[in-house]
Design a protein around this nucleic acid. Sequence first.
DNA 1: TCTCCCTATTTACTCCGACATATTACGGGC
DNA 2: GCCCGTAATATGTCGGAGTAAATAGGGAGA
Lengths: 251, 251
Amino acid sequence: MKTDSISTETDDKKATKDVRGPGRRLHGAIAHKLGTEILSGKYQPGDILSGEVAFAEELKVSRSAYREAIQVLTAKGLVASRPKAGTRVMPRDRWNLLDPDVLGWAFTGDPDVEFVRSLFELRAIVEPAAARLAAQRRDRDDLKTMKAALADMRRHTLTTEAGRAADRDFHNAILQATRNDALMVLSASIGAAVNWTTQFKQRSRALPRNPMPDHVLVYDAIAAGDGEAAAAAMNVLVELALDDTRSAMEE
Amino acid sequence: MKTDSISTETDDKKATKDVRGPGRRLHGAIAHKLGTEILSGKYQPGDILSGEVAFAEELKVSRSAYREAIQVLTAKGLVASRPKAGTRVMPRDRWNLLDPDVLGWAFTGDPDVEFVRSLFELRAIVEPAAARLAAQRRDRDDLKTMKAALADMRRHTLTTEAGRAADRDFHNAILQATRNDALMVLSASIGAAVNWTTQFKQRSRALPRNPMPDHVLVYDAIAAGDGEAAAAAMNVLVELALDDTRSAMEE
DNA sequence: TCTCCCTATTTACTCCGACATATTACGGGC
DNA sequence: GCCCGTAATATGTCGGAGTAAATAGGGAGA
């Protein structure tokens, strides 16, 4: 994707390079910038983002764009603004940490090890339970989807993007089989964040071992309808992933 | 933690016919209106919210207000808009169902029984695990907070608002003791939604039984550091709540 | 003189409407 | 059937009027 050049060449005096990083829209880019700055701790809870006009001028954007960015952050619980008191950063426990965007912002730059630990812990709670439910409720179609994903995983290894996509498909199929919407969206969010971490795991070193047999174990248990076995096998899987990520992060 | 409640109510004494029902700001009210309409199924995924200007005119608000409302909905994954193609409602699996606002919108009007079930199921997975972790990691202060909440619960019964607040405090203290941020925010979201349901449980009928002994069991197990017992006791608690809500919803 | 309350000012967000721009879907021309 | 021009529509920008709220100042009572 090419980041197209600046739109307004009428005014060349802005030496500041264009803010639009990963966001496609202008306010999206601003929200991304401010969001990462808040998540990284540059702005602490209770801090004040002084001045709509001042900030808009500093970023060389119009007040409207800045305002819409603030709306996005407000919607995610990161900030709140009141007529006279300016825009304050909310305390951490009001943040919407499971929001995919917030999760993404939390993982740009330095990933807070403590938070990563809590995420994996949550995953270790949820995913085995999901596997247990899936074993009880899966139908033939679910199994077929899982099997296909498994085949894809075997064909492309986990070092390729296609292989990781197949891994995601496998887990998604399990979630689908739980017939639980809340579980699905939660695991999807966590999974996306975890995938973010696996990216620099893969960047730092090749995958140490082949996780395929463990995946097959999960599938077999689900196919057999054995909830406890499925939960146990999935537990092994997430512990494995945790080990890998932990060793990758300790460098 | 003294949850200072920011003024959520606006005096509607002015007889202006504007849309702001439960809303704080104008765009907040619009987001609320559109959000509930999407959640209730009035707008199906794939539907198009035709025309920025047309919509703004129909609602008797300016384009800015409508635009900012759309930003909020976009931030929560409910809609996405592209030039020329209008603003489309996203498929359900892109929705941010754990967002507190979205959760609230889902419970205005008719609560989808299937979704409520999935929420309680998730709660039945997460809360016992949280109790287990709390039993392993709690310190003296955590126990003191739980004990105080328990005392408050005994003083005011669960039929009063103060009593329900004490119940929330008790659960929050447990979450706090897990030392897991992700777990905390997740359970907080779910708890808020569940509390919404308990409101019409309480509205439809008085609470059938006194849940205090079960709460004490959870506390004792956590105080003793027995993770398994804590998980089991908490499991009893959520099953009880599920039964109550189920019977209340079947009327 | 000190304290408290009430009022006024200032400040910053909120909302508005119009203008300019860019991107995309649609349809006509080859 | 493919390509390209046009029209439609969302996006970004701007400045101003309106409004709510925090702070400062003044007046009254002790």
